[in-house]
Design a protein around this nucleic acid. Structure first.
Length: 273
DNA sequence: AAGAGACCCTGGATGC
DNA sequence: TGCATCCAGGGTCTCT
């Protein structure tokens, strides 16, 4: 599942591979992959446009275009991009093909078809609802403390709320809580400043380390070069239920929080502080 | 504010 | 072996 680190790795790869390419023609093979505008306007709006920049915001990939508009992609569960010579035979999960003028194709691939593409005048039309970037300078421990103070719910669902912190998904929420030694059901407002500082550092560390290891590949994730990540070998709790905690040996537990599988060490992350 | 449930999808796991 | 069923999971939406 692409979360912030995986989307960052893909965006960097796309910037390198197609950062200045011109889109000649677009083929939409699965219309629902295009969120907006309508498919004909999407195709027409992209024809002839030069990509001038590819970057990430939250879990979105932003392609800036030479006419000032933007192509945005949210990969959801199984979306991805890859670049091939035009002679490459079709792939069963390709949903949108961007034919480039240099003879290559950019494929939007998505097994489960949850991902969405947006062609918009301004990226803010889509991104305005997002919260703070966890790897930015604005995300300080004090800012996190401000956020948590007003929240009566459990800490784990809060970390998954994109309107509060943008880019953290299920894997890195569990990993950050483990690293900070905080139980996923602790009330956000109950964390003391020492715990907030630990959580703030843990969020940034698990995300940055995952980027450094080119993302986590559990099933389908590949970067823009088609390579798997290496971060899956470094996970401490995610999908490790029943296995010994790497820190203390206690079996990792799995519970459901906010309808999401949640993994933690009952010894390193006590329910009571 | 927050939690539950439905929905969108498919591959893989599980059950019989 | 083969078929049916269940489940995960990000985000959005509705309802309470």
């Amino acid at each position: 599942m692409p979360e912030l680190p995986e989307v960052e790795v893909i965006a960097r790869g796309l910037q390198r591979l197609i950062g200045q390419s011109i889109i000649q023609e677009v083929e939409v093979l699965w219309p629902r992959s295009v969120a907006r505008p309508e498919v004909p306007a999407f195709i027409q709006g992209l024809a002839g446009r030069r990509i001038i920049d590819v970057r990430r915001r939250g879990k979105f990939i932003l392609f800036s275009l030479d006419d000032g508009r933007s192509l945005l992609a949210h990969l959801r569960m199984t979306g991805g991009f890859c670049v091939f010579p035009r002679t490459t035979p079709p792939h069963p999960y390709v949903r949108v093909i961007f034919h480039l003028t240099d003879g290559r194709d950019l494929w939007y691939v998505d097994i489960r078809k949850f991902g969405r593409l947006y062609l918009v005048d301004s990226p803010e039309e889509v991104l305005q609802a997002l919260g703070v970037e966890p790897l930015s300078a604005e995300f300080t421990a004090e800012r996190l403390a401000d956020i948590l103070r007003r929240r009566k719910g459990a800490i784990k669902p809060l970390l998954l709320n994109q309107g509060i912190i943008a880019g953290v998904g299920n894997i890195y929420a569990d990993e950050a809580l483990f690293r900070a030694g905080i139980h996923p059901l602790r009330r956000a407002a109950d964390l003391d400043m020492e715990e907030v500082r630990a959580l703030h550092a843990a969020i940034r560390e698990v995300l940055q380390e995952a980027i450094d290891h080119r993302g986590t590949t559990l099933r389908n994730y590949r970067d823009a070069d088609g390579e798997t990540g290496q971060n899956q070998f470094r996970l401490n709790v995610y999908r490790r239920q029943g296995e010994p905690c790497r820190r203390c040996g206690t079996p990792i537990e799995r519970i459901v929080v906010g309808q999401r599988g949640t993994h933690f060490c009952p010894h390193c992350q006590p329910a009571q502080p």
